[in-house]
Design a protein around this nucleic acid. Structure first.
Length: 504
RNA sequence: GGGCCGUUAGCUCAAUGGGCAGAGCAGUGGACUUUUAAUCCACGGGUUCAGGGUUCGAGUCCCUGGCGGCCCA
């Protein structure tokens, strides 16, 4: 297909809103004038940021003597009669002014600039690096070309997009809202910090299956998909845990993975159906040492991102992540909140009475002791925790992959880390006894057969791995999106670049 | 799953008690050789989310649905 074919293709132009139509007509006109509004290559010599860095000392109203070719998206235009200014923005967010003077570039090129260029277009400008009379570093063009014609007007650059448009058209949000671009950089820097922290401690990063033949590693409803080749249903993973434990059995004794988990559940301000998860395991560690390591990872991330462990949230408030963090026990803090002692021996009937007087009347009648304790705790205590807090020693019957507490028989060596009222991470002394693990999984399978969609089946291969001998191990899972929320104070849909939304 | 709020120009938002649908930015035309969200003059731009109903008359009131947000479970 040649350019003539492209330029002659007009697709329902008359039905479009005026601004879209005008831009399409400009594109057509450029083609008909023998110009390519989408050239394959342009003689760019410098990034905008490079020009800025090289000439930061240039005095006001001065010439550098250096000629550069730069490209960028037109964010603002200020056209006077014979002198035009445009603010170009590069992909790294840096900006540089282009100046087009009739004396320098000529009548024809200047009027073409005025008639062809719209806000949002990518343009190429070549000329000398100078500063304007107001001191603005600029490229004084002796040549300009369209680099890529934009067919849609940019939204108002000084107002935020509506929340829905931000998420649906993140590419536009990234252009007009610097906070959006900043969040992407912060997320990348957080991942880098985590990987650095693990690297320093001798951890190895691995990737384990996202498509799994059995659901396992967490209590959650999975997404189901189908393999045509194997002619069997597969699950998108809800957790990498069982594979990372296989790694530990195989001698990768300090191991971590950062990858996506998928849970077929509702989404709200702190839940997304797909979310990035960090899990890490260390042999000869336990849930106490893993709590210390988790704290260090988060503090090191805050330090490397912001140079301080007291972070400033998007709403301007400060959040202190430094120093030691509070430790409470689940049964102890719940007993205190209820004003009545609750222990692993407390009966289901008593727990239900507590739940009713706390206003939790519609709890699933199938909930047993552990689930009731956790629901009650979350309602009475967890939602009100603000400062970083480790909540220790969970009911044993909701932690089928966790070692029994070394002192309390009805409890598991498990903690949850709560930050600003949500669960950020969870850590364990892992259950490594294959016989006990088999019994736990068989109990899970029984629950599943009774209709519990979150219960896991018996994973024979996982049990076989444990039977080869897994060293005592501490393990942690931490939501990356939630870590971003804790570090920035943003909602989960701001920390995820392209969150799932219903089609328009 | 339930309740509440929202949905109007390309974008962000107005519109008395049911009476000609508006502003800013953006766009088009014009003026302007040092602007910084440039300024000034003029002009164009709407299936008011969709469908139904009440009414002489509906952006506005009623019903159903879509999408989004918040709260609750």
């Amino acid at each position: 297909m040649n350019d003539q074919d492209q330029s002659s293709r007009v697709d329902g132009t008359e039905d479009l809103p005026e601004q879209l139509r005008v831009r399409r007509e400009k594109r057509e006109r450029l083609f008909s004038e023998g110009q390519d509004p989408y050239p394959v290559a342009l003689p760019v010599t410098h990034e905008l940021s490079e020009v800025r860095a090289a000439h930061s000392e240039l005095p006001v109203d001065a010439s550098s003597g250096q000629r550069v070719g730069v490209a960028g998206r037109v964010m603002f235009m200020r056209n006077t009669g014979k002198l035009c200014f445009a603010t170009l923005r590069g992909g790294d967010g840096s900006e540089l002014q282009a100046m087009l003077s009739r004396n320098e570039i000529g009548e024809q090129a200047l009027s073409a600039w005025k008639s062809d260029v719209d806000l949002g277009d990518h343009v190429f400008v070549a000329g000398e690096v100078i500063t304007s009379r107001r001191g603005e570093l600029s490229v004084l063009a002796d040549e300009w070309r369209m680099a890529a014609k934009s067919l849609r007007p940019l939204p108002v650059a000084h107002k935020e997009l509506s929340e829905e448009n931000r998420v649906r058209q993140r590419y536009v949000d990234l252009l007009v809202r610097s906070q959006a671009a900043e969040t992407v950089r912060t997320r990348a820097a957080t991942l880098r910090s985590l990987r650095d922290s693990f690297e320093r401690r001798g951890y190895l990063e691995v990737e384990t299956p996202m498509l799994q033949t059995l659901q396992g590693g967490a209590a959650a409803r999975p997404f189901v998909t189908h393999s045509n080749a194997l002619d069997m249903d597969l699950y998108l993973r809800i957790a990498p845990e069982l594979f990372l434990k296989r790694c530990v059995v195989g001698g990768i004794e300090k191991v971590f993975e950062i990858n996506r988990n998928f849970r077929n559940e509702g989404s709200d301000s702190s839940h997304s159906p797909e979310f990035a998860m960090l899990e890490f395991y260390e042999a000869y560690s336990d849930y106490n040492a893993m709590a210390e390591l988790t704290r260090a990872l988060i503090q090191e991330a805050a330090q490397s991102l912001f140079g301080t462990q007291t972070v400033t949230w998007a709403d301007g408030s400060e959040y202190d992540l430094s120093g030691q963090w509070a430790n409470i026990t689940m049964y102890g803090s719940l007993s205190e909140a209820l004003g009545s002692e609750v222990t692993p021996e407390t009966s289901v009937e008593t727990l239900r009475k507590h739940a009713e007087s706390a206003g939790l009347s519609e709890l699933d009648p199938s909930f047993g002791h552990g689930k009731l304790v956790e629901e009650l705790w979350e309602h009475m205590v967890g939602n009100h925790l603000h400062a970083p807090t480790f909540v220790r020693d969970f009911p044993l019957d909701t932690a089928p992959l966790t070692r029994q507490h070394r002192q309390h028989s009805g409890m598991a060596e498990k903690w949850d880390l709560y930050v600003k009222g949500f669960e950020l991470a969870t850590g364990y002394s892992e259950l490594v006894d294959p016989v006990v693990e088999r019994a736990r999984l068989e109990e899970q399978a029984r629950l599943a057969s009774e209709g519990d969609e979150e219960a896991m089946p018996v994973d024979e291969d996982f049990l076989r791995a444990l039977e080869y001998g897994m060293p005592p191990t501490g393990g942690v899972g931490m939501g990356i999106d939630r870590l971003l929320m804790a570090l920035t104070g943003l909602g989960i849909r701001e920390t995820i670049l392209f969150p799932l939304v219903r089609p328009e």
